[in-house]
Simulated scan of single mutants.
Amino acid sequence: MKKKMLFMALLGGLNGILVKAQVGNVGISTASPGSTLTVNGSFAATYKTVTASGAIGANDYYIAYNGTADGTLTLPAAINGAGNFAGRTYHFKNTGGKILTVSANGSELIDDQNGTGLGVPAITVPPGYYAFLVSKGTTTGTTWELVLVSSSNSIPSAESTYPFSAVSTTTRQMCDATATPSSPWIMTAITYPQGTVLNKGNVLNTSTGAFKAPNDGYYVIQGSTQFDNGSVAGNPNFTWTVLYLVKNYAPGNGGSILVQSYQPTVTRVFGSSISCMTYLSAGETVSMASVAGVSSGNKYEVVTSTMFGYKIAN
């Protein structure tokens, strides 16, 4: 040990750098290292640019992907026992114009904190985005943890923010009309019997039409529908319509209206859209709902409805 420390001191002296050991700590350019390794100066690690798919090696640290086609970079396989690299970090930046996929090795998974408790085999890093991962030291299941995915302007990647998109096109939804805009309104949540296009973490209930926030944060929600009485008996005109985004909707008593679009229109077919950004606590819901008056009868229909959104920040 004395010979090793003497060699380190000699090496440091030859390079004009102070290397100091103190109470089990090692310091570079400092005589009083307060941590296991203290560097009083700059730090550099391997920077590498790649243009094609391949494996990430033990000597890699920061990898910039600049390929002309979509590519996949595969993380190293976990090691059990001697050689286990718990805590190893990798940084990825997609500096090109194609999609970069960072994949775990074999059956290993990446813990992307998606709210399901399950990992994913790979993450997507779109052009201009950065990803930071750390090895958990485990050898099965989620062996890697995704620390951060972000773009150059710090907006989180949709891959990690619960995007959803629901659509119901040819299926018409029959609703009860309200006599006048000033009477107690009959609010009806719009549902999506034809299912979803995208529903990460099953955050949208298509049978009730409610999006449920998997965790606290700020969310963007947008929706649209077509009020269409073409198949209603008598083909009544709409006398007015309202489209809502409602927090914590419940049949019979509505909920907290986030935003509404009122249209005093007289027509048989009318399209309306709505959007908002709101803060939701985990478990709170947002539904798109409608109210309408008709020139005759007490029914109206909506068709070609869609709602989509995603989390934008904590």
Rank of each mutant, 00 (worst) to 15 (best):
S157Y: 03
S53D: 08
S53V: 11
T138D: 15
G106K: 01
P121R: 02
S53Q: 15
Y47W: 10
V149G: 09
V26P: 06
S160T: 14
A55K: 11
S35I: 09
S35T: 12
K136S: 07
G34A: 10
L146G: 03
V39Q: 13
P76M: 00
V149W: 00
I79T: 15
G141D: 06
T74L: 11
S107N: 12
N105H: 06
T169V: 15
T101P: 08
N40I: 06
A55P: 14
T38Q: 11
L75H: 00
G57W: 00
T30D: 04
A86Q: 12
T116G: 08
P33K: 00
N59D: 12
A44M: 01
Y129Q: 07
T139R: 03
S53M: 11
G117C: 07
V134S: 08
Y47E: 13
R88D: 08
N153H: 01
E145G: 02
Q113V: 07
V26T: 12
T143W: 01
A104T: 01
R88A: 06
S168D: 15
G83K: 00
A69W: 04
Y129G: 02
G27K: 01
Y130E: 07
S29A: 14
D70W: 07
F43W: 13
T161P: 08
V39Y: 03
A158N: 14
G27Y: 03
N84Y: 04
K98W: 09
T124V: 12
L109D: 07
T38A: 14
I56M: 04
F43N: 09
